[in-house]
Design a protein around this nucleic acid. Sequence first.
DNA 1: TTTGAAAATAGTAATAATTATTATTTTCAA
DNA 2: TTGAAAATAATAATTATTACTATTTTCAAA
Lengths: 127, 127
Amino acid sequence: MLKHSKQRESIKQYLETHYTHPTAETVYLDMKEEFPNISLGTVYRNLNLLADMGEIIRISSGNGPDRYDGNTKPHYHFICSKCGDVLDIDMEPDTAFMAQAGKNFPGIITGHVTHFFGYCPKCHKGN
Amino acid sequence: MLKHSKQRESIKQYLETHYTHPTAETVYLDMKEEFPNISLGTVYRNLNLLADMGEIIRISSGNGPDRYDGNTKPHYHFICSKCGDVLDIDMEPDTAFMAQAGKNFPGIITGHVTHFFGYCPKCHKGN
DNA sequence: TTTGAAAATAGTAATAATTATTATTTTCAA
DNA sequence: TTGAAAATAATAATTATTACTATTTTCAAA
């Protein structure tokens, strides 16, 4: 049975108002403002809980720590190859893409994750 | 200046003949047949080298260790949500997809990585 | 062919990210 | 109220990978 916790509530609200795709570490540091004694383990546990419940999304970039997104509407992400920053991609998820992938596949496809790579506006301009 | 090494040669050949998307650990254990004293660090260093040179591909699944693929022809991968096995998806890379993503994006998109998720034939059949 | 500097190696230590453990505190239905 | 279940803070442990270092290998030039 899930019980309420101030910490989880606050973490969720934080992600709902900060669309910056923060890492667990960043969430942890920012949570410390409100809960000076909060532990990193609590942040991880609640991020996992919220992700499992579908209330937030986990973004695994492949290198560096995972990032978290309070925007649960399906969307794609861009990851800057230089600074590692994660940005939203304004595009509808491609359902035809998934259907096509399933055509010659002997198992069952339930979803897909796409990350776009390249250079973010800042890095492209030479920052 | 890159110098030849028996170990790197063998790792590359192993990946060219085993399309099983092995982890560094698996490559390491199998290399031990030929090089009983090979070190895990050597395997990692060479996998990184080969990947950087574009001679193999690194597959970061998001959880669990990275996997490596000797097939450098661009293609997609399927990752089983139950057993974690990685399978090839028989589909042409979608260039229109990337073009679409770049339309409203203020930076520069140079590539994308897509992983499909679901249940592999074995797990679907209840193994 | 030697030779010797650069690169690679094996062995090991260190790091980064995350999960597990545990004693204490909080939540909340009865 | 109360007390069992869940959550927490603090900390230890684990996993995957990279870094360090003394020794060995490679290979171009003598």
